[in-house]
Design a binder for these strands. Structure first.
Length: 254
DNA sequence: ATGTCGCCTCATAGGCGA
C-alpha cells in the first residue's frame, strides 16, 4: 500500500501538477496540505480513481485526503480547543488504517502568539497519539509538521536557530512523539543520510543548491510500524514549472 | 533585512502568511 503526502501551496495553482503526479506515481492514498481556498476540486480526481475528503477555509490552510479505497471520515478537527477554527486536521479510516493528515502551525515569529498556538497544537495531537497507542491502533500520521527534527534535517542549522520550525521546545515535542512509540518512517529507513529535504523556499536558488529542510513526515504507530517497507522523498515535482515549495514524501506499507 | 510565491481586497498595489 502506497501512501503519499504533499503540501501543494494552493490546490488551484497546483491542480495539474497533482493530477500528473498521481498518474505517474499511483499512490493508493494522497494527503494534501495548504489547499488555500474554500473550493476543493474533488470531481477532478474521480476520473483518476480517487474519492476524497477535505477540510477547507478561505485563503489559508486546508487539508484533503484522496484514496482509491473506500474512505470514512473520522474527524475534521483536532480535539482540545473549541476556539481553533483553522483547517489543519483530517482523520479518515481507509484500507484498515487510521490515516491522519496534518498541517501543523508554522509558528513564526517565535516571540508571538502564533508560536504559543503551535506548541499548544502539538500538545493536543500528542494527547490523541497517546490514546491511539493505548488502544493498539494502526495509525499513519502524515503531513507538513513544520518541524525540523534534527540538525541533519537542514542544510545549515545556524540559519534556522531563530525559526519556529527549529526551536528546542518544538524539536523536543517531536522527539516525545518518537519516545511515545511512533516511528519516523523516513529517518528510520535512512539513518544518518544527509541532504534529504522536502521543502526549499522560493528565495534565491535554494532548490538548485539543495538548501532545504525536512519538515514533511510520516509517523507510524507501533501497530502500523511492522508494515513499513519503504519511505522516499520524490524531489522531481519541485523541479517543474511553477512548483509548490514542498515536494511529495512517499510511504510504502506491506 | 532580503529574497519569492499565492491569496485576497474598500483591487490593478499592498498586506498577509509562508
Amino acid at each position: 500500500m502506497r501512501i503519499a503526502s504533499w503540501n501543494v501551496n494552493s490546490i488551484r495553482a497546483r491542480l495539474e501538477h497533482v493530477k500528473r503526479w498521481l498518474a505517474a506515481t499511483q499512490p493508493d492514498v494522497l494527503l494534501l496540505q495548504e489547499l488555500k481556498g474554500t473550493e476543493f476540486p474533488a470531481e477532478d480526481f474521480r476520473p483518476l480513481g480517487y474519492e476524497s475528503a477535505a477540510v477547507t477555509q478561505k485563503t489559508y490552510n486546508g487539508v484533503a485526503i484522496l484514496s482509491r479505497l473506500p474512505l470514512e471520515t473520522l474527524a475534521t478537527a483536532l480535539p482540545g480547543d473549541e476556539t481553533d477554527t483553522h483547517a489543519r486536521y483530517l482523520e479518515v479510516r481507509t484500507g484498515s488504517l487510521r490515516v491522519v493528515d496534518v498541517y501543523m502551525p508554522n509558528g513564526n515569529p517565535v516571540d508571538g502568539p502564533k508560536f504559543a498556538y503551535k506548541l499548544a497544537w502539538m500538545k493536543r495531537i500528542q494527547q490523541r497519539m497517546a490514546e491511539w497507542i493505548a488502544a493498539g491502533e494502526a495509525v499513519v500520521i502524515g503531513g507538513d509538521f513544520n518541524v525540523i527534527p534534527e540538525e541533519i534535517d537542514c542544510h545549515k542549522p545556524e540559519a534556522w536557530l531563530k525559526d519556529a520550525l527549529f526551536q528546542p521546545e518544538v524539536r523536543a515535542l517531536y522527539r516525545e512523539f518518537l519516545a511515545a512509540g511512533y516511528t519516523d518512517a523516513f529517518r528510520t529507513l535512512h539513518p544518518g543520510e544527509t541532504g534529504q529535504y522536502t521543502f526549499w523556499d522560493y528565495f534565491r536558488d535554494n532548490y538548485q543548491k539543495n538548501r532545504g529542510i525536512r519538515i514533511d513526515h510520516f509517523l507510524l504507530s507501533p501497530a502500523a510500524a511492522p508494515r513499513l517497507k519503504d519511505c522516499t522523498i520524490d524531489g522531481a515535482p519541485r523541479a517543474e514549472e511553477k512548483p509548490s515549495d514542498h515536494t511529495p514524501i512517499v510511504l510504502e506499507l506491506a
